[in-house]
Write a protein that binds this DNA or RNA. Structure first.
Length: 110
DNA sequence: CCCGTGACTCTAC
DNA sequence: CGTAGAGCCACGG
């Protein structure tokens, strides 16, 4: 039953996302000990059907909502996020990304 | 076994 | 910003 077990890990990770904050599919996967399995997280989420699960706190790595703008699910997610005080603009949540410049790092004179 | 299909992500241009 | 390509994994035809 490894598959079901993995499922639980993912669900557990999603439950750990604090109120009023957001995470990404990739992050959730990593939290569940499954680095690189973002698509699996999406799969699990699409079939969980658990009302209590804070699925709305999971976004793309870009901060963009994964659903198509205007769709019922999109609207629902925006509503839930806003109700938690999360600011959503054009289907996207502001979140800071690592502005790491690997190129400059590698080419650094020393 | 190959192929298409996703609530995905990263790098390049 | 936007598009493309490649990588990723699980499932069903």
């Amino acid at each position: 039953m490894g598959k079901n077990c993995i499922n639980q890990e993912i669900v557990a990770a999603i439950r750990r996302i604090p109120y009023g904050t957001v995470s990404s599919y990739g992050e959730v996967a990593a939290m569940a000990g499954l680095p690189g399995r973002a698509r699996l997280v999406a799969k699990v989420l699409s079939g969980s059907g658990e009302a209590a699960l804070p699925w709305h706190r999971v976004l793309r790595s870009s901060g963009q909502i994964a659903f198509a703008p205007g769709s019922a699910q999109f609207d629902e997610q925006v509503r839930r996020l806003q109700s938690e005080g999360v600011e959503v603009k054009r289907g996207r949540v502001k979140r800071d990304r690592k502005p790491l410049d690997l190129d400059a790092l590698l080419w650094a004179p020393d």
